[in-house]
Design a protein around this nucleic acid. Sequence first.
DNA 1: TTGTACGCGTTATCAT
DNA 2: ATGATAACGCGTACAA
Lengths: 335, 335
Amino acid sequence: MSGIKDIAKKTGLSLATISRVLNNSPLVSEKTKRIVLNAAQALDYQPNLTAAALRSGKSKIIGVIVPEINNPFFSSIINGIEQYIGKKGYSIIIAQSHESQKKELHAIQSFVKLNVDGILISISKESTNFPFLDKLEQEKIPIVFFDRNPQIDNIKEVVLDDFSGAYMATEHLIQQGGNTLIHIAGNQNLSLYKDRKKGFQSAMEHYQRNFTENQVLELRKNITQDTQVLQELIKKNNVDSIFVNGDEDCIYVLNIIKSLGYKIPTDVKLIGFGNLSIGVLVQPSISTIDQRAEDMGMVAAKTILQSLNENQPITIKEVLSPKLIVRESSRVISN
Amino acid sequence: MSGIKDIAKKTGLSLATISRVLNNSPLVSEKTKRIVLNAAQALDYQPNLTAAALRSGKSKIIGVIVPEINNPFFSSIINGIEQYIGKKGYSIIIAQSHESQKKELHAIQSFVKLNVDGILISISKESTNFPFLDKLEQEKIPIVFFDRNPQIDNIKEVVLDDFSGAYMATEHLIQQGGNTLIHIAGNQNLSLYKDRKKGFQSAMEHYQRNFTENQVLELRKNITQDTQVLQELIKKNNVDSIFVNGDEDCIYVLNIIKSLGYKIPTDVKLIGFGNLSIGVLVQPSISTIDQRAEDMGMVAAKTILQSLNENQPITIKEVLSPKLIVRESSRVISN
DNA sequence: TTGTACGCGTTATCAT
DNA sequence: ATGATAACGCGTACAA
């Protein structure tokens, strides 16, 4: 392995010329270009990115912060980010917030010290204010929020249209013949769960289903209690369709309903949200809304790389449209 | 934000002294130490890790390569790595091989250019030779293999005792009253799946269950065919216990068996491998072998950090013991 | 078109 | 115990 010095020595050219060739400067003749590239090949030249970073101020590293890497949704997003960014010659460095604002700040500090060129972040549940934004602006480090976004102005963000997703899910249940619907909601501290609830409400109203707050509940994650609640809703209130805020909860609900002796989708129709791969392994397979995690990662990656070249602080809001995926848990068998 | 120059200017001390204080050199008086640290605080000093890396040759970055980050096992390992390494002031940079040896090599190249201090890798299924080992040794970059390991000598590796895990699983099925057992195997190109098969075989032999290759099969992932095969095995051969190579496949098998009308665990007992979180969401919940993914990540992280300080190329093999997790799919209801 | 020389921010060596 | 200065490997303004 060798550096530009070695190439200079071998070719008899100056360091500057070598550097120019390797950075595709137009100010070099074709001939010397060839000579240098050949020598580079022969010597197994490997640029020292650290030195380049120090000199140029560009590290070719993007920092990524997620609440939990160990979460299929986020790891899929990271997958998307890595794929896009890897192609462009960048690397990603990863930190987890574990839903703690303190760790989030700490991660950003580390990233700044490492001279990352940009930051991609999905904020923690705790985070309501964002003290790091000023600092990053000073340092000219662009930041793009994805999925979970702060409810503030003048930022770049990539989000899913959770409202539409929930609307689509609800509409689908109704179109499949659902009469009495409920929504099992997620943590209302996160705006995306709020949006899913709103989407449910909106679809209900649009189809004149007389929406009330009684039709929305959160799980206790205590199987006895949850079973009891669902039993009552289905028996007394004739609930025949349930839109669950996420696939994991959906499978949990699915099992409860099956254990109660109801048939899915005949007695109760179910749809989740998230399109986890496990959704096709359960029986019946669950309908869901695809969050397009990889796409989100790719768009976020694209956005941050764009921001590196334009130094105007533009406001960007990329909204991805979710996709309805119909499987057994909500499909009315046609005959 | 400021650097050591700013502190030097403010305190009137030399750059060298500032650097010494910040690196906890013993060669400074307590008094100046205080002065410097106070100034650092006041000026919001942030070390430029790029510059430090260039000068010292230590980047405080560890490169991690996994086949797919979007895989709960690997993302859990990364979680473990990140937790351990983050505490020690290191960062992790991540690349995926997508099971391609070419991408694996490419990732290593990138890591070398970035001057990572060490590499953690779980090799791709394709990889049978490891041309990068020489280069890394030249560059004095330590490498630690985890989970999937090359079958060669003189390396550092952290693996699960897959043999024992499979043995435990099989033994458990027998102890629960299993008479006729089969094993649904994984891709035999990976040594860990081979080990799981061997563990099954060993337990079978130990309990005089007359092991033959007929008791091992791989799924076709075609639901019609797989259903047919399982149906026959249960009906004709009286199979009453199945050890499946992984939890995802286990859930797949579970659904097939339920759809055939058999009761689990009464008619057929099941156990998987991997302890995916989804295992408790299906019904019945599946017994499994915990792979201790986070522990593996932490041990791998610990191992690589140790290697940074000792420059002797020591051979290390850390073997983690799996844990049996008994849930409904294999538990004989006591009465 | 090519070369010279300085600087990026820090650490390490040598002197004081 | 502290300071002056070179060096890490590369990029670029300026000179030629």
